[in-house]
Nucleic acid binder design. Structure first.
Lengths: 368, 368
DNA sequence: CTGAAAGCGCTTACAG
DNA sequence: CTGAAAGCGCTTACAG
């Protein structure tokens, strides 16, 4: 207010208050603490690291100096010199930190790491091999203690050098290619099979498959499960009911609409009477299309992967649920087991999926 | 297989293949590269950092050695010695990495940071002040270049030392207390006002407020907006229509049920004819309750904060949408602006909310 | 254009 | 119980 009344005074005040003129206060170092406490750096180091064999008086003097100087140890410097070299940080490379699957997984990793006071570096790859490699490199250049990776590239052989250097590595969601390493996966094939069996149990014989990009290993496994279950049920595999390469909600909605228009969902044409959507976004696209066509209560639907609010929709959406949090937890525990020295052969852990019947997967085919 | 036939052979094979017997290959250092290339460490350093003034022959020799040794520079060591001290990593302290708001925000921060080849350390506080401080401390001990914090504690004064040491700090979602610093917030009060005005426009006079823990600043601001809008509309503030301290879906569902049973949602009692749910989980709880009571098409509802699938529910759910991605982007850009030397006075950026009318917010009160 | 010496902040490996 | 010297992997500040 005063400043506006008197520009000159304002300028002066600003110059004086100009934060750029105030140099940053340098951080106190171990040496500063030692000087203030009147002891050697080694003694301060002992106190900071909780080693014993320091007289109480010196401990107090050091503690006081630490408080007064607001000393924060530099963990990078400490890790550099330490024989273990541990940085107490791990890197997590995921598909997209914003999607529910990745973020639930990340959160579970965090919870396990947190118990050990280990921090998380995280990044998204967006289905881009270059990003995967760039992130891994960036993490290793910072000497993370371990890596959890949801691989997207076609070859993870480039990680061999890291493994040989002793950096534990656990893959999640998708199996690594060209490298033998720990991994934690959903049992995609069995899960897809469960969906088909459920739909067949209700009486469906024309079950559509809506799948993600055919090159993705998880998509392939789910399609394999679909095929195998049809076989087990003695149902024909009708190519007209199979659509691959759907990667967005819109893709899936369009494909669903086309499929149902071709035969009607009433069972009286050659269209499907039930739909298995092999992935989250595809499921949502299918729901959108079913709603638009007014067929949501007459065509059965089971989606792979659960999603929030699935039980608030009408009908409630039945799903084959994965457990990303469990995947993250198991992966992190395996990683720390390796960090603790376990050098047994690489493990491949398959996590079971859960069939969650809420309504849409129980709709029977219309009786002609 | 053979191993099972001959346990001794197996043991032998295991001993020979025992990975614990294989020592990890130590990582190559600058010194190793220099030795192999026949140059000094300084020359290697120049090549690694892309400085010029090195003869092409030496550059080639160094590059060759780097490739052959699979050399990865140690960025921690480099940062320790560098005058800037930059670690090319920032810390992000959020409410819960698994919730959609936090994860969308984090992802946006990542995208901005990624352009500058800066990495993200991230952690969840779960509404716990201790965790907030512990995470901040852990991040600063690793000398992150900057901090983005969604504060939960009642006082952020403890961060003053960090700011004075030159670590830029940007708060998101909630305003810091006891510290003047940059922050990026949703305009909660105006957003809540928009909701009430919309409902009043449709004819509602009895609008319930379902709120989060009363101590949370954002909840307070939303309640303030609710009150102010009622005043502007000349509507009475009926304490019977106000419920605070809802923090879970179940809390909210119970409160909604109680509220509607008390007067019926039909407008003929003294219950509400419309509901303003001030937070995501509360909105979902309210929807659950409305559906259970069969009132979802007769009681109007507007939720604060958008959520996935809101437009697949019946009726579609109207919301006051925040923009967590924009919040993250703006916060990150502000942070990097500070890192680039901007030492202007702290900014407080208010992000506008958007009213998204999808159906539930347009339901008129029943005519008695 | 190139490199030897010193030092970032800390811990190790000793010696007293 | 305590501390002086050396060194982790790198860059700085020089000197040639």
């Amino acid at each position: 207010m005063t400043e506006h009344a008197d520009p000159a005074a304002h300028a002066d005040a600003a110059a004086q208050a100009d934060p750029a003129a105030v140099p940053y206060r340098p951080r106190a170092t171990l040496r500063d603490v030692a000087a203030m406490a009147g002891v050697s750096m080694k003694t301060v180091s002992r106190v900071v690291n909780g080693e014993n064999g320091v007289t109480p008086q010196k401990v107090d003097a050091v503690r006081l100096a630490i408080t007064r100087l607001d000393y924060r140890p530099n963990l990078s410097a400490s890790a550099l010199r330490r024989s273990s070299g541990r940085t107490a940080a791990i890197g997590t490379v995921l598909e997209d930190l914003a999607n529910p699957f990745s973020s639930a997984l990340l959160r579970a990793v965090e919870d396990v790491a947190n118990e050990r006071r280990v921090l998380i570096l995280a990044g998204s790859v967006d289905e881009d091999q270059q990003r995967e490699r760039a992130l891994v490199r960036a993490f290793t250049e910072r000497r993370v203690d371990g890596l959890i990776v949801a691989p997207v590239g076609e070859d993870q052989g480039y990680l061999r050098a890291e493994m040989e250097a002793g950096t534990p590595l656990v893959f999640v969601d998708r199996q690594p290619q060209g490298l033998l390493a720990d991994c934690v996966l959903s049992d995609n094939e069995a899960g897809a099979g469960q969906a088909v069996h459920q739909l067949a149990d209700v009486g469906h014989r024309r079950i559509a498959y809506l799948g993600d990009l055919a090159g993705i290993p998880t998509a392939e496994q789910r399609f394999a499960g679909y095929q195998r279950a049809l076989l087990e049920r003695g149902l024909p595999l009708d190519p007209a009911l199979v659509v691959h390469d759907l990667h967005t909600v819109d893709d899936a909605a369009r494909a669903t609409t086309a499929l149902l228009r071709s035969g009607g969902g009433s069972g009286d044409g050659d269209g499907p009477t039930a739909v298995f959507a092999s992935q989250n976004l595809v499921t949502i696209g299918a729901i959108t299309a079913l709603q638009d066509l007014g067929l949501e209560t007459s065509v059965a639907l089971i989606g792979f992967d659960d999603f929030p609010l699935a039980d608030l929709l009408k009908p409630r959406v039945s799903v084959i649920a994965q457990n990303p949090a469990e995947m993250g937890r198991v992966a992190a525990e395996l990683l720390f087991q390796r960090l603790d020295g376990d050098r047994g052969r690489p493990q491949r852990i398959l996590l079971p999926t859960t069939t969650v019947l809420r309504g849409s997967g129980e709709i029977p085919p219309a009786v002609p």
